[in-house]
Design a protein around this nucleic acid. Sequence first.
DNA 1: TGATGCGGGTCGACAATGTCGACCGGGGTG
DNA 2: CACCCCGGTCGACATTGTCGACCCGCATCA
Lengths: 254, 254
Amino acid sequence: MPGPIQSLERAAAILRLLAGGERRLGLSDVASSLGLAKGTTHGILRTLQQEGFVEQDPVSGKYQLGAELLRLGNSYLDVHELRARALVWTDDLARSSGEAAYLGVLHQQGVLIVHHVFRPDDSRQVLEVGAMQPLHSTALGKVLSAFDPVAHSEVAEGELAALTPRTVTDPAGFEQVLELTRARGWAADLEETWDGVASVAAPVYDRRRMPVGAVGVTGAVERVCDESGIRARLVAAVRDCARAVSRDLGAGRF
Amino acid sequence: MPGPIQSLERAAAILRLLAGGERRLGLSDVASSLGLAKGTTHGILRTLQQEGFVEQDPVSGKYQLGAELLRLGNSYLDVHELRARALVWTDDLARSSGEAAYLGVLHQQGVLIVHHVFRPDDSRQVLEVGAMQPLHSTALGKVLSAFDPVAHSEVAEGELAALTPRTVTDPAGFEQVLELTRARGWAADLEETWDGVASVAAPVYDRRRMPVGAVGVTGAVERVCDESGIRARLVAAVRDCARAVSRDLGAGRF
DNA sequence: TGATGCGGGTCGACAATGTCGACCGGGGTG
DNA sequence: CACCCCGGTCGACATTGTCGACCCGCATCA
């Protein structure tokens, strides 16, 4: 296998670096962070800028991500078949459950949110499409970890960081959670990622019965749970939605 | 100036090609479209795939954009200062006007939507963040063309495509529209982009009084207009919002 | 007001690097 | 069954990206 293209790898590393660092970064920052010569870094940055992937603040000379990325990211969503099929079903899910609905897929070591329907009330909410969520603490992530072998190996290699006091952090315990998830076909997150927030999710399959994503709802624990855990009505709604999307993708009936 | 990096330019061209073509593209399609050797194209695609910018359908072998682009595009929004400042003001604008509010910036030959607040009713709407709109026919685009010299030169070089029967397509007439826009400080679009849809927009300035974007509302012509054109209440609301965002960016009072 | 250091940007030589086109192997089609 | 199309590989070649020293403007500080 003829090696991957070095300059591209470096460009990608620069973009990720810029995406990570909250603030804009200067040329020297970038160069030293990646161990590259300034000249090299400059060449890559200039090309990226020319292509619109990076923008430079004219006064400070510092760099940040560029608008073209937003446009391309949007195009990604346009072609995304799973998302397209799920649009109407998640809409119904949010309506019937009264909570925010999410559609997530595995991406690297996390869940990438590819669709998000706001909770149907007039509160101010921020769109989370494009955001990442952890695999080990969210309902979406647990579902993917339980049903998708790739997700499972990703989560097995990473740390189970304690995001709240209720996060499951020991690998053995987490495996049991995944067992339970596989057994009942859905996963819950009871204040394991954010205090006061609970979520439920179920897997979505494609025509070959392979897991390709997860749908779920997330909301305040007081609304989503009763004394026995997640409200049965919500679990049923989420699972129905997941089945509907799967059927829409050609997975047939269960 | 030492030339830009060839492989990066080519990679960017491939990404744009994939973003443009609705469908997934095969290796040979990409190679022939860009006039590259298959081997070269394959190397670039493989690297892009490895970095998550491109995904390959395992059965057909065809390529499409990758999830990393969505994540990076989202990060772009996180750092975007104009958008951050505009969040609450556009929210108020949508509330008070009862229409969908938009925030757009110049990108290449169009307006890139960086924020979009849904019309405050329960209708099903699709988020347009990341989408592009034409410069010559939308209110946002006219505002940018009128106040931003770069936008003006972009629109002057391009075609004024007729999107509806009411689109202004002759350059002289369009210049008059821009004159009017500069004179009164806002622009309108009366069914010039989509039939039955009208919009109003006003410019946003940064601390150096340079135009950096535009805010506006868009809605059904029956609601947005009265017999004399755009409703005066809407124009006032949009201009107030634009001033508020500008002030927030440090442009001071007018 | 001059010296100093830092940061972004440029230059030119060098060879590592990406590119090219011929060549596989497989899956669908006539 | 033969053909063709398509994704993918290989190795030689020279183009291309890389490196590190250098330049310049700005802000800081004496």
